[in-house]
Design a binder for these strands. Structure first.
Lengths: 196, 196
DNA sequence: TGACGATACGGAACCATGTCCCGTTTAGCA
DNA sequence: TGCTAAACGGGACATGGTTCCGTATCGTCA
């Protein structure tokens, strides 16, 4: 799945060195620009920061979603791996769920505009959508199932819908110091709670 | 506050008849286009539907927010007035709150993209923001206070933040039949609940 | 009723941004 | 060192918001 697959067996010829270099440069530049101007910063800005032409971006990352995925892949993976770890950390499943949602929220609100674009219906963001869901929904499902099995929460809310909801709650949090996405997300989870 | 004020005392000269006619035409056209293409439909489309030039739109409604406000003013008013009515309808304050949030959600999800634009930070939407908050936040505050006074919910969540949260939950609901904004909002409100 | 000034209008022009194309450059290999 | 395919850069095009300016119309006053 990672990029070393490209030259697997050295049969298919590997990408040229300058292409690999440019991809790295682009990722770094995009990460910087995303922090400064949000994930929907103009393509030209990213290209300029990387010192390449705009076409080069499209060549490496056909859609903006591809670029965003590449930039944040590590952090999404970390979030996904935190789920099982939390479950096994000794707390109750409900506590694990709460903490994991906290991690998810923290990730989203620190990425300018990512939550908003995650919910966008514009063509070209399906890949982003799919990636997040593929990677994180199973984790969320497992946490929900565990908490439901322990009788801590109701079990009639699909993980997919819950994640959409939590993602939505994170929108705009970065501009508004009075808006506490984490707290609202916690409230949403609390709404799942069953009486002991 | 309504437009008959413009000619109050007949001192300031009233707007020309064609201008008033165009404003009405524009509102009707905008309402139609908003339903068909969402509240961020191209200005040109609205102008074309109304059979006027684009500048005419800007003359009557300097920002898109002004147009949106004008189109939905009646419905927002109705929502605002429903709050006190629900409180006095005999149910518990918590039930009134739940139902009112339901009305708010129903309003938002049936307006293509309105929830999203409500949360947008782009300059020019402050007016929309301010209008919704000015009109609806006091209503929400009153419902929250009543439910808190009755000991039904916790009282440490500001109405403003709750409304932002509920508004966010409505984003994207129109495209996704599996996403039930109303239910998630109900869950959020349930999270406020105190044990009896 | 006719003329005049203010108001309002329409559409073209301008700017920003995403996207694509094409002529040029360069890495990698023989 | 020379060749070819990969990769590149920047300009061309499309879309949509915003503004400008010459023209048309309303409403009033003589």
């Amino acid at each position: 799945m990672n990029d070393s697959d490209r030259g697997a067996g050295r049969a298919a010829r590997p990408r040229r060195a300058d292409a690999r270099r440019n991809e790295k440069t682009l990722l770094d530049a995009a990460a910087e620009v995303f922090v400064a101007s949000g994930v929907d910063a103009p393509v030209r800005d990213i290209a300029a920061k990387a010192g390449v032409g705009t076409a080069t971006i499209y060549r490496h990352f056909p859609t903006r979603a591809d670029l965003i995925i590449a930039v944040y892949r590590h952090q999404v993976e970390a979030c996904a791996e935190a789920g099982p770890a939390l479950l096994e950390s000794g707390a109750t499943p409900y506590e694990a769920l709460q903490r994991w949602i906290g991690l998810f929220v923290d990730f989203l609100v620190t990425k300018h505009g990512l939550a908003a674009v995650l919910r966008s219906d514009e063509a070209g963001f399906e890949a982003l959508h799919a990636y997040f869901l593929d990677r994180l929904m199973p984790v969320c499902t497992r946490l929900l199932d565990a908490a439901a099995a322990a009788g801590e929460i109701r079990s009639d809310i699909p993980a997919l819908q819950l994640m959409h909801g939590v993602g939505n709650l994170c929108i705009g949090a970065e501009h508004d110091p009075d808006y506490d996405a984490r707290r609202l997300a916690a409230l949403l989870i609390a709404g799942l709670r069953l009486p002991d």
